[in-house]
C-alpha cells in the first residue's frame, strides 16, 4: 500500500487532499440543490462569473476571494435586472451575464504581465499550491454551508417541490432562493483556489448527479455526493501524482468519469 501512502507523505499533497476534501463536501451539500432544482446553468455561470473580480484582484493586488464574491453578487443582481426588465427567460439573462463576465475577466487579465499563467491559475486552480489560510477558509465555509443547509432544509425542499406550496406553508421561497444562490456563490468562491473557477463546477454538479443515480432521498444524495466527491479528490490526486497530470483538472475529470461509470453499471434496483 506504499503507492497509496507515499504521495500523501508530502506536506503539499496533504494540504491539497484536506482542501479538496473540504471543497468536495461543501460542493456536495450545495450541488445537491443545484441538481435537484435544475440550476446547473446558474451554477456554471456563477463559476465563471467570479472571473472579473479575481482578475481585478490579481491586477490591483487585493484578496481574490473578495473580488470573486463581489463579482458573483454583481452577476446575480445583473441576472435579476435582465429578468425583471425584459421579456426574456431567466436563462437568457444567465447566458448574457455568463458570457459578459467571462469576457470581461479575460479582458482584464490580458492587461496583466503574466496573462497566460494568471488565466490558467484562475480557471483551473492549483490544488498543489493550497495554503493553510485556504484550508481555514474552506473549513469555515463548510461549517456555514452545513448549518445553513440544516436550518433551511425544509424551505429548500418545498421550494424544489413547488414555489406556491412553499409560499403557502410560510417557508419564504424567495428568501430561500436568495440563500441558495448565496450558498452556491460561497461554495464557488471558497473552492476556486483549489480546483479553479472552471472546474469547481465539476465538483458542484458531478458528485450530486452521480449520487442521484444511486439513492432516493435528499439527505442520502448529499451524503453519497460527499463520499463520491471525496473519492474523486483522493483518486484524482493519486492519478495526478503518478501520471504527472494537472491535479485540479484530474480531480474534476475523475468526478465526471464516475458519473458515466455509475450510469452504465448501477444496480438494476437503482434504475427505477
Amino acid at each position: 500500500m506504499d503507492w497509496l501512502a507515499e504521495p500523501f507523505s508530502h506536506a503539499f499533497m496533504q494540504r491539497a487532499a484536506v482542501a479538496g476534501i473540504l471543497a468536495a463536501v461543501t460542493t456536495a451539500l450545495v450541488g445537491t440543490w443545484v441538481v435537484i432544482r435544475g440550476l446547473t446553468f446558474m451554477g456554471d455561470a456563477l463559476a465563471h462569473g467570479v472571473l472579473p473580480g479575481i482578475a481585478l484582484a490579481v491586477l490591483w493586488g487585493f484578496d481574490p476571494t473578495l473580488g470573486a464574491a463581489a463579482s458573483a453578487i454583481l452577476m446575480v443582481l445583473g441576472i435579476n435586472v435582465v429578468h425583471r426588465h425584459s421579456r426574456l427567460n431567466e436563462d437568457a439573462g444567465i447566458g448574457l451575464l455568463f458570457v459578459g463576465m467571462l469576457a470581461l475577466g479575460v479582458v482584464i487579465i490580458s492587461r496583466t504581465p503574466s496573462y497566460t499563467g494568471s488565466l490558467t491559475g484562475i480557471l483551473f486552480g492549483d490544488a498543489l499550491a493550497v495554503t493553510t489560510r485556504d484550508i481555514v477558509l474552506l473549513a469555515a465555509t463548510l461549517t456555514a454551508v452545513t448549518v445553513t443547509t440544516a436550518v433551511f432544509y425544509r424551505s429548500f425542499l418545498v421550494l424544489s417541490f413547488n414555489t406556491d406550496k412553499a409560499e403557502m406553508l410560510g417557508l419564504h421561497p424567495r428568501a430561500a432562493h436568495v440563500v441558495m444562490l448565496a450558498l452556491i456563490t460561497l461554495a464557488v468562491v471558497a473552492s476556486f483556489r483549489t480546483v479553479g473557477s472552471l472546474l469547481v463546477f465539476g465538483l458542484l454538479v458531478a458528485p450530486p448527479a452521480t449520487a442521484s443515480l444511486l439513492v432516493r432521498r435528499v439527505p442520502a444524495m448529499m451524503a453519497a455526493g460527499a463520499v463520491l466527491g471525496v473519492a474523486s479528490v483522493v483518486v484524482g490526486l493519486l492519478v495526478s501524482w503518478y501520471a504527472d497530470t494537472a491535479a485540479s483538472a484530474t480531480i474534476a475529470a475523475v468526478a465526471v468519469a464516475a458519473f458515466f461509470v455509475v450510469l452504465l453499471f448501477r444496480p438494476v434496483s437503482a434504475r427505477r
Partner: peptide, 20 residues
Amino acid sequence: KVNDLLPVTVREVVAMGRYA
C-alpha cells in the same frame, strides 16, 4: 406545476403539509 423528479418518498411529500 410540481417537480415530480424530486428525490422524496410519498410519506415525505405528504409530511410537507405539516411544515405550515
